[in-house]
Amino acid sequence: MALVDAGVVVLDCADPEALAAFYTELLGARETGVSPNRVEIRGADGFRMAFRRDANATPPSWPRPENSLQTHLEFVVTDLDEAERGIVGLGGRPVEAKDGPGPHEERGFSDPAGHPFTLRRSAVPAAPKQG
């Protein structure tokens, strides 16, 4: 039996409403709770995030070493180029060079408040052997 009922990834930021809007679009989520200092969202698959107001929030500096990574999110996508265009259109930004093609291609980004996250291309299934 689990000790907890659910987990929520919580990001501290200066403007929780704006950051919730970014992730709501990114994940196709919906708001499930709003208070003066916190906004919570839930994705269609049940993934939950919350954004907590912290006027003194300082984003991580990743990929630079000072104040480094602290933590990051990873999202799996089918089309990295399409996802990147969408993220940039929502106000996110790339933070490192693109990897070459491969089964585990990844790209780093930050959300509008500076929190890092990675897009990882879903592994391409191997073609069935012929003959």
Rank of each mutant, 00 (worst) to 15 (best):
P94S: 02
S110H: 15
D12H: 03
A113N: 12
P16Y: 06
V76G: 06
L26Y: 12
G92V: 04
V4S: 00
V4G: 12
Q130N: 07
R52K: 08
E31Q: 15
G7V: 07
E105D: 12
F51M: 04
D81V: 12
L27V: 04
R85Q: 14
A126M: 13
A20Y: 02
F22E: 06
V4C: 06
G131H: 07
R120E: 08
A123L: 07
V10Y: 05
F109G: 07
P112K: 05
H115E: 00
L80N: 06
P36D: 13
P116G: 15
G102W: 09
A126H: 08
G92A: 10
W62S: 03
A14Q: 15
F75W: 13
N37M: 11
F47Q: 05
T118L: 15
D45M: 10
P94E: 13
E31N: 03
A29E: 10
L19P: 04
E17R: 14
V8W: 12
N56P: 05
L26D: 06
D79T: 05
V76H: 07
D54I: 08
P103A: 03
A55S: 13
N67I: 02
P125T: 02
A21N: 02
L27M: 05
E74L: 09
G100H: 12
T58R: 14
R42C: 06
V76D: 12
G7Y: 08
A20K: 02
L119D: 05
G7L: 12
A123V: 13
R48D: 05
P125E: 01
R53A: 15
A127D: 04
A83E: 12
L69R: 08
T24L: 13
D45G: 08
S68Q: 10
S68N: 08
F117N: 01
G91I: 04
I87W: 01
L90Q: 10
E25D: 11
S122F: 09
N56I: 02
F75E: 01
G7H: 00
P125G: 01
N67M: 10
L80R: 05
E82Y: 00
V34N: 05
A29W: 15
P112G: 04
R52G: 01
L73I: 02
A113H: 04
G43I: 02
S35N: 02
V10P: 03
V88L: 10
L11P: 05
H72M: 10
V4D: 09
P94F: 00
I41D: 05
P103N: 14
L27H: 04
A2E: 07
E82H: 10
L19W: 03
E105W: 00
M1E: 15
L19R: 00
D81G: 09
P112N: 04
F22W: 08
P94V: 11
T71E: 00
L90H: 07
G46F: 08
Q70W: 03
P60E: 07
F109I: 11
V77M: 05
R48K: 11
L19K: 08
F47V: 10
S61E: 01
V76M: 05
E106D: 11
N56V: 11
D45I: 09
R30F: 00
G91H: 04
D111E: 06
D5C: 13
P128G: 01
G114H: 13
A44R: 13
A6P: 03
P59T: 05
D81H: 03
E105R: 14
V76W: 07
A29I: 03
F51D: 06
G100R: 07
R93W: 02
E82A: 11
L19G: 09
H115I: 03
A123H: 04
R120S: 12
G43P: 03
V124H: 01
